[in-house]
Amino acid sequence: MNDKPKQQYDIAAIMNENINVMRDVVPWANETRFRVTKVEKGHVFGTQPWAEHLVGDPESGVIHGGVITTFLDNLCGMACTSAMTEMRFVATIDLRIDYMRPAEKGRDIIGEAECYHLTRTVCFTRAWAYHETRDKLIATAAGTFAINKARLGGSKK
């Protein structure tokens, strides 16, 4: 595994090949049911379907902001990993969400996340949620992520 430490990988391509696995291994992502649809280097797209059990306002039937937070947080984290040249996972340091307008009942939400700067330890990201195009936004997010050290054989606390 560490015989070629300098080797660079096309992480985005590897992620694209495993696009469904990335969500399936995250129990809370399975609960909120979002899908990752496309991975490019530093850029990730996804869909959050409407579902009854995610409703946060019973009068309007609109899904809860927390679902959008989960969705954008996850896409931002994946955008960080896709921007790298070796497989590293990230942990959210902070995330800011602005809610522009409520999502519509029964409609899919499209999410897009971008990792626009990367240092050795931190990734900077932004993300958008909308129904059709980015000119009519439901929410935006800005998040910073810490890059976890490469660990061989499990976690140390």
Binding site: V26, P27, W28, A29, T32, H64, G65, G66, V67, T69, T70, F71, D73, N74, T92, L95
Partner: peptide, 12 residues
């Protein structure tokens, strides 16, 4: 725990 689940809980 998922950060999104914690954030949802705190928002509520």
């Amino acid at each position: 725990l998922h950060g999104g689940a914690i954030a949802s809980f705190l928002e509520l």
